[in-house]
Design a protein around this nucleic acid. Structure first.
Lengths: 356, 356
DNA sequence: CTGAAAGCGCTTACAG
DNA sequence: CTGAAAGCGCTTACAG
């Protein structure tokens, strides 16, 4: 009965003694690429097994100055896009033998304490995947010599690496789609107004519509939050000039907007109103919603993110890099279809106008 | 231009030199409760600020034998219940000054490599919040002297701490509700058949129905996966003896089942079929689904989990503890309402039969 | 309250 | 290929 007492944890010295070799030999056995004879190695491995030895990653970190830990800051996970990203990150980092220290659940912009924690753990890299964290934080990290990648956002100054999709082109594509669908009046429900994703998507939408001589766009703000999106939708649908076509800045909000449209205003989708979203995530795919939505290729975005990090960690060079991926406008049933421009690809319907 | 070069990181010795005190004094300044004069403390703090010093948590861990890291193993995040839990855990652990090392994105039962990682980082505690991990793993951890809490599941032998809700009572309550609603035929769509949640919910359901002389229950398996739940629903709805009332083992599956019912079989909910779920999470609340569902009090469950962990860490005693919370059957529109037993509480409709 | 010193469990030149 | 030794950046008795 040794239950209840925390085992001391067996050390390399104990293994060394048991195997009749030096502590160095034990260390080399567990260091890939270290020079060690197979015979010694076998002896060590055998003893390690008997004693239940595992190298202490903490001690290793201290001396190598590498923690093999990547911090991921993700303020909220309600939007299924983020859990998706997180799962993919878990996979990708594990494949590189890195671990994921998650910072989530604080809902503020007060990121200084977070930063402090990151620094104390000497993380090897940082992924900022939340739209509501300060740009300062990221630059602070970068200037501390820790590789940082912004996921799905950028900062004004582009001193920090980022991975995004062509949000402006996405907004524009959506405008083209809605115009091609024969809609006459347009609206936009914004996300966080000072986020780069919202800014770019909105700008592209405005430009796209302007290209067809349309300059009036009904506008409400949902701040990427479900309740706020509902409120925005109520405002939008109460307008005397309720638009025929609505671009909602992400799917998380679009779902809420559709529910308000159907169950509070009795609107039929897409007969009474066409709705297009962004992210192509979770509920967007479900039959109840079937949202026509710009996709963001999560898997490739995550790959790029980890790529940049690994590059910077191994090279020691921190040079800002910006990887921009392409999305597709996946066509489902939440918006009227245009007569042309819809093609089949990978079993999905995609909007690809000829002139693009 | 020092960009590109990883800064060495300033140490306590450097701060000591700068402040003209011993390295011990610096350490004491950053150790809450250590005996240090306010004067020395101020000097140290000033120097630390100038130099940008932060204690190295890795070095601290090595000597204190406390990493202040809790590992959370959560195989998949698709079911919004888990991101919810994760966010809450992030908050609760941060409040205790602990950090969250997340293991996710591997979709198998092969948890041995995970275990190895956990051990190498000398985590202070482990939360197992995924239904697909082996019971072995958890006992292995426990026997290694690391506090482990199973979240939302139990094992046969109850040597490992757990936090759950009364799943059997929940299943029973659902049976009572459906019987009270006047349904005559019943079905069940199971989650992972060997998971404790599924076993208990199913058992309670069966017992509850048996109490009313009902022993025939149409049965399909959805394994807590969306595509499998869809397949199960198709089987269920194709039966000549399609049940009037269906209990789906969690909301994640219930959403999929509702979509299949409505859009593939043209069934009206709840007119043609009543559906009840479990978890009371995310989409359950949305108007498109409005699922009548047993709630699991995530916040309180998380509090209990962190509580148990903190107790065991500080006391050094690892004694299995089982906390069981109560849920409520939250009544919405996915199932026919009984004439009596529905009460209002906290602005929600709850099913609470008198004789319970 | 303060400092000198030992030591946490490793990695890695260095010399053989 | 191997071992003795230094050292990573801290905490914490110990003595004053």
């Amino acid at each position: 009965m040794d239950g209840g007492v925390k085992k001391a944890g067996v050390t390399s010295s104990q293994v060394a003694e048991h195997a009749g070799v030096s502590q160095s030999a034990v260390s080399r056995t567990f260091t890939p690429g270290a020079s060690i004879s197979s015979k010694t190695r076998q002896k060590v491995l055998a003893s390690a097994k008997v004693l239940g030895y595992r190298p202490n990653a903490i001690a290793r970190s201290l001396i190598t100055n590498r923690s093999r830990i990547i911090a991921v800051v993700m303020a909220y996970l309600e939007n299924l896009f983020y859990p998706d990203v997180l799962e993919e990150l878990g996979r990708a980092l594990a494949a590189e033998n890195y671990h994921l220290l998650l910072f989530t659940g604080f809902m503020d912009r007060d990121s200084d304490p977070v930063f402090d924690q990151l620094m104390q753990y000497r993380v090897d890299g940082i992924i900022l995947a939340s739209t509501s964290l300060s740009s300062e934080l990221s630059e602070e990290c970068a200037s501390a010599g820790i590789p940082v990648v912004l996921f799905n956002r950028t900062t004004e100054r582009d001193a920090v690496s980022s991975v995004t999709t062509r949000n402006r082109e996405g907004g524009k594509r959506i405008a083209e789609f809605l115009v091609a669908g024969g809609h006459k009046s347009f609206g936009y429900i914004a996300g966080l107004e000072n986020s780069s994703t919202n800014r770019d998507r909105h700008q592209g939408y405005v430009e796209g519509l302007a290209g067809h001589g349309i300059t009036e766009i009904a506008y409400e703000v949902g701040n990427y939050s479900r309740p706020e999106a509902e409120a925005a939708a109520r405002m939008m649908f109460s307008r005397p000039d309720r638009p025929e076509a609505l671009f909602v800045a992400n799917d998380h909000m679009a779902v809420a907007v559709m529910d308000v449209a159907r169950y509070e205003f009795g609107l039929k989708i897409p007969e009474d109103i066409s709705i297009v979203g962004y992210d192509d995530v979770g509920p967007a795919v479900w039959r109840s919603y079937g949202i026509t939505s710009m996709s963001q290729p999560v898997k490739r975005m995550v790959e790029s993110t980890v790529d940049i990090l690994m590059d910077q960690i191994t090279s020691g060079e921190i040079e800002a890099e910006h990887r921009i991926h392409n999305g597709e406008l996946v066509v489902r049933s939440s918006a009227r279809h245009p007569e042309t421009g819809i093609v089949e690809a990978d079993g999905r319907k995609i909007f690809r106008p000829k002139d693009v």
